[in-house]
């Protein structure tokens, strides 16, 4: 009972800290964007535009005001849940995020599932015979996936399966000949709910290559983490004690060693989610996936301040939410953790 209260207290403290953290991140992004060289006016008009036109645009976008007042406006808007409008095409930033975030989430979730299934299977497979052939192959797989540069791996996969064999589309998220499903923005889910077969099939075919590439690249972390932790758990004293009591090997591995080995893997999975953004960028760019990482990169190159700020704040909030969720899950599963 007191444990549950402690857990709720922990959750409350994290949620209370969230606004502070978001404010810090928002301010940092604001500052960094202004400190970094480059100017949105240059990006919009080119640097050969007449000075009057530049000044007029600067005034129109509010970029002529002192930094402090820009910062004040930005924070006030943020407090009201408004992220502003894009400098390049006047689209509200919320709409930009609303369009590209589901695409990235869909890709990320499916990739993470693939990574978990493949990684855990590979990590588990060597257990029967440590240092055996299967174990060695698993280790090589793990090291290989760490070492592969993501964009290169993505290009090779693209060349082989899309260009060479022609099994799957090269890039994009949806067949250009069809109308995308409406709803949450998760095409796979939306088309499934609508019961639209061609839409579902089309979005699935587009998802397969980017999701498996990203998933395989991440799976090495899972494989090696599980492999190491499982080995350590199987070498532990309590496993020897369990064997001495005559438990079956199956029970020893699945009931005693595996849960202990999976706890650290869960923590690692939480960290991986945060680092997913970087890996996803290269995949999204290579496969022309209209996701939030690709959109962020585009906005940075255009010095589209509001879009960059909006995306970073939303992604930061998501990462915090995921890490708090993982912390809570670990705490629920591990009775030793106290707050």
């Amino acid at each position: 009972m007191s444990r549950r209260r402690a857990l709720l207290g922990y959750l409350a403290s994290r949620l209370a800290l969230l606004p502070l953290m978001l404010w810090l991140i928002a301010s940092l992004v604001f500052l960094l964007l202004r400190v970094a060289p480059g100017d949105p006016i240059d990006a919009l008009l080119g640097n050969r535009a007449p000075a009057e036109a530049r000044a007029a645009l600067r005034q129109q976008l509010g970029l002529d005001q002192p930094l402090l007042s820009q910062y004040g406006h930005y924070l006030a808007d943020l407090l009201h849940g408004q992220l502003g409008t894009s400098l390049t095409n006047q689209e509200p930033v919320t709409a930009v995020i609303g369009r590209s975030l589901p695409a990235s989430l869909e890709l990320g979730v499916v990739a993470l599932l693939i990574a978990a299934v493949v990684g855990l299977a590979v990590g588990f497979s060597g257990i029967a015979r440590p240092e055996g052939k299967l174990d060695l192959a698993g280790r090589l797989f793990g090291i290989g996936t760490y070492a592969l540069p993501p964009f290169w791996a993505a290009m090779v996969v693209q060349l082989v399966f899309a260009v060479g064999l022609g099994w799957l589309p090269v890039g994009g998220r949806f067949p250009p000949t069809l109308v995308p499903p409406s709803g949450s923005g998760f095409y796979l889910l939306d088309s499934l709910l609508a019961g639209n077969g061609p839409q579902f099939w089309g979005s699935l075919r587009h998802l397969v290559l980017p999701a498996s590439t990203l998933g395989l690249l991440l799976s090495g972390i899972f494989a090696n983490a599980l492999r190491l932790n499982l080995r350590r758990a199987l070498d532990s004293d309590y496993v020897e004690a369990a064997r001495s009591r005559g438990l079956s090997e199956r029970r020893v591995v699945l009931h005693h060693a595996l849960p202990n080995a999976l706890l650290p893997v869960l923590t690692i999975a939480g960290i991986t989610v945060a680092s997913l953004i970087g890996g996803a960028l290269l995949i999204e760019v290579t496969y022309s996936w209209p996701g939030i990482a690709a959109r962020l990169q585009e906005a940075i190159s255009q010095r589209d301040y509001p879009v960059v700020q909006g995306i970073v704040v939303v992604v930061a909030a998501l990462v915090v939410a995921v890490s708090v969720a993982v912390d809570l899950l670990v705490a629920l599963l591990d009775p030793r953790i106290e707050f």
Partner: peptide, 10 residues
């Protein structure tokens, strides 16, 4: 050592 001989999750 009774501590290390018991599974901490059970």
């Amino acid at each position: 050592d009774p501590m290390t001989r018991l599974n901490p999750l059970l």
